[in-house]
């Protein structure tokens, strides 16, 4: 990608602010374990994907992640609903007392697409997690979303989160990024 191509020449400040505000809302819902409300930010045809990341040589034609490889999440809305149902079952003992999350979203960039109702948004997500009296851990990832405007509101139609971790630095991934 050349510098000129990488630069977003049609910068739309209002739209960029709207997307940043949308992500702040999403992060607040996730921090508050308000998962049913979070689900409402997704389109019915959403694909939510967090691929596993492998250390591969630069010369390797296979990318460090790929669609047909194993993934932490490779989910439809129905799959995501099932995960939310677990959180809400009242029996998720490993979440009681609750984990404290701080989702931080930054580096938001917005690109237009040929479809006037859709845009591509790049962002960085960080989630600090703390449970009990443990030290906690921090997850880092770069996101690329396809956002769709439905009835005036932005919704997530596709999300890819590429983690900076080849080895997840903890026992689980008990949230959404």
């Amino acid at each position: 990608m050349t510098g000129e191509r990488a630069r977003n020449v049609d910068f739309d400040a209002v739209l960029a602010l709207e997307v940043a505000a949308f992500y702040a809302l999403e992060a607040r819902l996730l921090d508050g374990e308000r998962y049913p409300e979070w689900l409402e930010l997704l389109t019915a045809d959403v694909h939510y994907w967090i691929p596993g990341v492998e250390n591969r040589y630069r010369a390797d034609r296979t990318c460090s992640y790929s669609a047909d490889h194993m993934a932490y999440f490779d989910d439809t809305l129905e799959d995501l609903r099932m995960r939310v149902a677990r959180f809400q079952s009242g029996a998720a003992f490993a979440e009681d007392p609750p984990t404290r999350h701080v989702h931080v979203v930054s580096n938001v960039e917005v690109e237009a697409t040929p479809d006037p109702q859709e845009l591509v948004a790049h962002s960085v997500v960080i989630d600090y997690r703390n449970r009990g009296d443990q030290v906690g851990d921090t997850l880092y990832g770069r996101r690329e979303d396809r956002l769709r405007r439905v009835d005036g509101n932005l919704l997530i139609a596709r999300r890819r989160v590429v983690l900076a971790h080849s080895v997840l630095p903890s026992k689980n991934l008990n949230t959404f990024l």
């Binding site: 790929s66 047909d68 194993m70 993934a71 932490y72 997840l168």
Partner: peptide, 8 residues
């Protein structure tokens, strides 16, 4: 199947 997942 392709890939693996690692954690600690």
């Amino acid at each position: 199947v392709g890939g693996s997942i690692r954690s600690v």
